[in-house]
Design a protein around this nucleic acid. Structure first.
Length: 281
DNA sequence: ATGTCAAGCTGCGCTTGA
């Protein structure tokens, strides 16, 4: 079985590329992140015509995760148990002088975002994950990111029972090693590289998972993302932030990992490329 | 070339998010 994960940065913009990728790669199960569409905008029929059943969760133009499968798709979960929500701040309200005041920002109730979807495909429990970005170390989104990862770790630890076949794949928005970024000095003080984020990422190892892209592709400066700005891709100024954690039984079946770097080329590319995991039948 | 892209909403530019 060929399992892949890809942050497509808008499915509607990239639908032709996704279909071409499925055809070219022979992927059986594709986890997508950042579909950037609502469920009613998701092209279920297009994927059905291509032979794939799809499950999607999307509530707005932001986030959105999906799983496509041509080897079955069962027991869909549109969030993980205990998945934290994010409390957006409403518009400022006027203070006594009628001016917007930073002291009167209104925190809206936390909303569980479309960042995780699970389904059982061909005997493997697949989770398509879009970890919150964090924005800056001082932003409430960063606190949310750490809480989100911790809650996922707790849930995932419970799934990692003996012989379980679980894959946690997606855009983790964490740079685990200094050699996973083109310039670690330039990233100091930013999100993705903080000790807390790196600890939250590596905690999945202690929870019973192995990150198989690292196992099969241990080299330095292997990237899965290149910013659209500053000619990052031609200069190969990338980040390694898309990963696949799997349970031991699934790890034992894993025969290889491919990072499809060519998918970043040409006009209309996503800023991320697919990470492909091959699993023996 | 302060070397980007996408979506929504109002509108044909701005804001948000990455």
């Amino acid at each position: 079985m060929r399992l892949a994960t890809w942050n497509v940065n808008s499915l509607r913009t990239r639908l032709d590329r996704v279909l071409a990728f499925l055809d070219r790669s022979g992927t059986d199960v594709l986890a997508l992140q950042e579909t950037k569409c609502r469920d009613d905008q998701f092209p279920y029929a297009v994927f059905e015509a291509a032979g794939y059943t799809a499950a999607h969760v999307g509530t707005s133009q932001w986030n959105g995760v999906a799983i496509l499968s041509r080897v079955g798709l069962e027991d869909v979960a549109k969030a993980f148990p205990g998945q934290p929500g994010f409390a957006k701040q409403a518009a400022t309200v006027p203070d006594a002088e009628g001016e917007p005041s930073l002291d009167t920002l209104l925190a809206l109730p936390p909303q569980v975002e479309a960042r995780a979807i699970g389904a059982t495909c061909g005997g493997v429990r697949v989770w398509s994950l879009y970890v919150p970005h964090g924005r800056t170390l001082a932003d409430p989104h960063y606190t949310y990111k750490l809480a989100w990862l911790e809650a996922l770790r707790d849930a995932a630890q419970g799934w990692a029972v003996p012989d379980a076949q679980v894959a946690l794949v997606g855009d983790w928005n964490v740079i685990p090693l200094d050699t996973d970024v083109y310039d670690p000095v330039a990233f100091a003080g930013h999100t993705h590289v903080s000790p807390a984020e790196r600890d939250a990422f590596s905690a999945f190892g202690a929870a019973g998972y192995t990150e198989v892209s690292r196992e099969f592709l241990p080299g330095e400066h292997i990237y899965t993302y290149w910013d659209y700005q500053q000619l990052a891709f031609p200069k190969n100024k990338g980040l390694r932030i898309d990963f696949a954690y799997v349970t031991p039984t699934l790890q034992a079946r894993t025969t290889g990992v491919i990072i499809d770097r060519d998918e970043r080329k040409g006009k209309g590319a996503s800023d991320h490329v697919p990470v492909i995991v091959d699993v023996a039948d």
